[in-house]
Amino acid sequence: MTETPLLQATALTRMYGKRVGCRDVSFDLWPGEVLGVVGESGSGKTTLLNCLSAQLEPSGGEILYTRRDGRQVDIFALSEGERRLLLRTEWGLVRQNPRDGLRMAVSAGANVGERLMAVGARHYGDIRGQARHWLTELEIDAERIDDLPRNFSGGMQQRLQIARNLVTSPRLVFMDEPTGGLDVSVQARLLDLIRRLTRDLGLACIIVTHDLGVVRMLSHRLLVMRGGEVVEAGLTDQVLDDPQHPYSQMLVSSILPV
């Protein structure tokens, strides 16, 4: 087993004025591990994810990340440029609303290809081939490679955003409600894809969702959030089958068995 966690969050807190975004969140994420974050709307999931992915400056606490070169860095002690490099070369970020994660004015192929170019790819044929491959993987007809994302359905836009993120083989992907806009069959395909990727590439993932079915299938470990705080953490199947905290029990019992 690897000795250093990929990501280490310690006492992470983010306030919005007097209002709590997230408070005192600590956990380790290991390479290849999929961590699910569940909780009702307003429980602080997006705030936590945005802090972890360096989109939002925490009010307190620390996030350490172990880079590909083996060096552990304090995310918020890095320069802006170093953080951007991390996001391009080591991370993926799948936003809740695909419009926030895509460039709507350039083609689907360019949306996928430009991530590759940002990490140094130059060969036009290769880039286009990769773009076609990832569009197909996410069940987007490769014939639509030159179409603009604004002409795609919401579900297709989300799939395109995921393709754009996976093309650079990130080590850690942050996802905020990734399956929200997708129809059931594409959800299943996507869940399968993410599972295979995490296994084959050692890809780690932090997935925020209110859908307990998604974490049941995808995540190894689970954080349950309420009012900005983590009320329960553990193995996903243990938290779902034998929840300890009253709030986790309420969450689990309020869904229909699947």
């Binding site: 553990g234 193995l235 199947d237 243990q238 089958d241 034998d242 300890q244």
Partner: peptide
């Protein structure tokens, strides 16, 4: 059995 597997705490 579930306790042994870590499925129940």
């Amino acid at each position: 059995l579930r306790c042994v597997y870590g499925n129940y705490r």
